[in-house]
Design a protein around this nucleic acid. Sequence first.
DNA 1: ATCAAATTTAACCAGTTGGTTAAAAAAAAT
DNA 2: ATTTTTTTTAACCAACTGGTTAAATTTGAT
Lengths: 202, 202
Amino acid sequence: MEKKIIETQENILDAARTIFAQKGLAGARMQEIADRAGINKALLHYYYRSKEKLFEQVFEEAFKKLIRPLAAFLADDSELFQKIRNICKHYNKILIQYPFIPNFIINEINTNPNRIINLISFEGVAEGKQKTMAQIQTAVKSGKIRPIDPRELIMNIISLSVFPFASRPITGQFLYKNEDMDQILKSRADSVADFIIQSIKI
Amino acid sequence: MEKKIIETQENILDAARTIFAQKGLAGARMQEIADRAGINKALLHYYYRSKEKLFEQVFEEAFKKLIRPLAAFLADDSELFQKIRNICKHYNKILIQYPFIPNFIINEINTNPNRIINLISFEGVAEGKQKTMAQIQTAVKSGKIRPIDPRELIMNIISLSVFPFASRPITGQFLYKNEDMDQILKSRADSVADFIIQSIKI
DNA sequence: ATCAAATTTAACCAGTTGGTTAAAAAAAAT
DNA sequence: ATTTTTTTTAACCAACTGGTTAAATTTGAT
């Protein structure tokens, strides 16, 4: 029995991820999620009491998928340039897999800013941030890299890693008409890190 | 009489911009838009036949606000570095004014990809793109800048200019707790251009 | 004062949506 | 074979939503 239960639960979550990411909380329909999961509405409510509960689970899971690895990379002991390469490579990999997460999160937090409250102060993300910021400042002082505000550098790394995926429906059309965007986005992994390092190194 | 009409129309559009940007097409309520415009629902429908029509107007207007200046800057004859500075400065200025536009557009195109069809092949944006891409390639060949794929450079410029605004509710919380984000985003205008130019110049 | 346009009031409607319920049926566990 | 759990069926409901209507009222222009 266990397997069937887990399978159904996973079918529901899969469907919910797709529908919520595409249409948001307000635009998603429980009936559509049920259809896509291959079950009926009654069973959907049997597993997840309400749309809101289902959404929260999907949302939190998606949020963690982005913030956890960031926290991990920021907290580790790699040398700065290597750290930058690691983050770029990892975000590229994870966003190839789940390209709709950034837009999904940004949009839903924009709609309901309260949602971020439960998720800040998250699993040592603050410590990692402090650590890497200190690392950047040291690199600046020792003359390893050009002067730059640490937070701005982190912002630039995230922007370059994430935005091309979030804006794909538009920039893909605008810059790469009908070409294989998957391939293009994949190939950015290394060049983005190079772009950043080139900018800060002396 | 004319003035009142225009004033009411503008009140409606203002309200619609705010509500649609915050909640999207699906999440917005006509009643809420009417309330915010200081009128009633009957009058709202008297001016704009349907939610969809009202939304289309707001959406198209927002889309143009981002794409037109991009097309203009890409098409003009400035020297490359100056062009980069121009785009960064202009997007910074316009996004300080309308910070919710990027997320609004990205999200709504993601929800309904058909919306982009009417808006591509837009006011010579393709020509501008070609022109600047050629300019970048020339700069690479002449040894003025390091080798880089022109489209990737354009993507990086847009990413660095736009993403900090789109992701503000999250990155603001994460990187700049409780600080004056307006001031911080404003101050990026020049440093972003420097960051890019530093990366590509020889 | 008169006329036309703008705005309000308030009731109404049909369709949709999240959610419930109870009984039956199917599947799995014992 | 019996019991328990999962799933379906199908009908139902209350709340909400976009949109309409018609009459009354206000407002501005002439």
